[in-house]
């Protein structure tokens, strides 16, 4: 197995890393436009706000990267965030530590069920996680009776608003998750297996990779990270609510794709995903700063996402030629 892994490491690593950074050119261009449009954009407080606002969706997107790299998809992350939030709100009255632990365990359990449905049940990831999205959201509403709960004590307040050496805690968590995921995907055998399963599951199996085990693991990772994201956003609001994580699945998938991943698996990177997450954050931020009307916000967001992917994927090259051929 190790021999296969070393064979797969081809090409100069530095070049590949630079290619991963391409998305940041798009990000900086977008930031340049934003800075021209609004004087408050480049204020350090505002830039920190964007990082803080994107911390929980970013953690979810890191987990989503693993899933999409194997060619899967996880639609249940938003529901997992909601369920974890209300479970913690129910347990925090005993002890905040138990609440945090239960949060991570609940996220892990959701991922585990997803993974088992996909591997053991051989459901398609779309259907399995769609079902879990309904189950998790339903459980969250049922358990909380549709109510929000203010979290008592300081623990969640710190998780959401505290700082480590001046950096907000959620941003530290996002940074940590990103670096860890990047290291795992780039430098470990397991990471290469994740890419291999997404590139060609049959060849991977022939090469002796435990495909079901790898597949199961990425859903568990996604679930755990959704749990951690829920801890962050629950802390930021200092409130447990079944309405958290609304549309997280779509934003996370969008971020991963903007970051250069292929929905068919095998291609993508955590660094790109973070670029995608920040692009989404900058779009939301500048639309608010400029006070763009509610209806046109969706249009602007959609256009920027499409443009970002076109530039990232190089789909704009020879587009004219393909357009002409389409009508010939």
């Amino acid at each position: 197995m190790d021999r296969i892994a070393s064979k797969m490491e081809i090409g100069p690593g530095l070049l590949r890393f630079l290619a991963e950074l391409k998305i940041f050119l798009v990000l900086f261009a977008l930031m340049g436009v934003a800075a021209l449009l609004s004087p408050s954009f480049l204020h350090p407080d505002n830039l920190f706000n964007i990082l803080l606002q994107q911390a929980s969706i970013g953690v979810v997107a890191v987990g989503m990267t693993f899933v999409i790299l194997t060619g899967g998809i996880d639609l249940s992350v938003g529901g997992a965030v909601a369920l974890v939030s209300v479970v913690m709100a129910g347990a925090v009255f005993r002890s905040p530590a138990i609440a945090l632990l239960l949060g991570v365990i609940t996220g892990c359990a959701v991922g585990l069920v997803n993974g088992l449905l996909v591997t053991v049940g051989t459901l398609s990831p779309f259907i399995a996680t769609l079902a879990m999205m309904a189950v998790t959201k339903g459980c969250a509403l049922w358990y909380s009776d549709g109510r929000q709960t203010v979290m008592p004590g300081d623990v969640f307040q710190y998780v959401g608003s505290g700082t480590v050496f001046g950096v907000p805690f959620p941003v530290v968590v996002l940074g940590g998750a990103t670096v860890l995921a990047w290291l795992v995907l780039r430098f470990t055998v397991y990471g290469r297996h994740v890419y291999a399963v997404g590139s060609n599951a049959r060849a991977s199996r022939a090469a002796g990779i435990e495909v079901p085990r790898v597949t199961l693991s990425v859903y568990v990772i996604s679930g755990i990270l959704a749990g951690i994201a829920s801890i962050l956003i629950t802390g930021r609001l200092n409130t447990g609510s079944p309405k958290l994580g609304e549309l997280y699945e779509l934003d996370a998938i969008a971020a991963v794709i903007i970051g250069g991943a292929s929905l068919f698996g095998g291609r993508g990177s955590v660094v790109g995903t973070i670029g995608g997450v920040l692009i989404l954050g900058v779009i939301n931020n500048i639309l608010n700063l400029l006070g763009i009307s509610a209806y046109s916000q969706h249009v602007a967001k959609g256009v920027v996402i499409a443009l970002a992917v076109l530039i990232q994927s190089g789909g704009y090259r020879n587009a004219l030629g393909r357009f002409i051929r389409l009508w010939r």
């Binding site: 407080d45 505002n46 706000n49 606002q53 609001l237 409130t239 931020n285 006070g291």
Partner: peptide, 16 residues
């Protein structure tokens, strides 16, 4: 009507 979105939107508007 979402607390989470209200948090983000208010942060951005207070900045502007």
């Amino acid at each position: 009507f979402l607390a989470e979105k209200a948090l983000t939107v208010t942060e951005n508007l207070l900045q502007a």
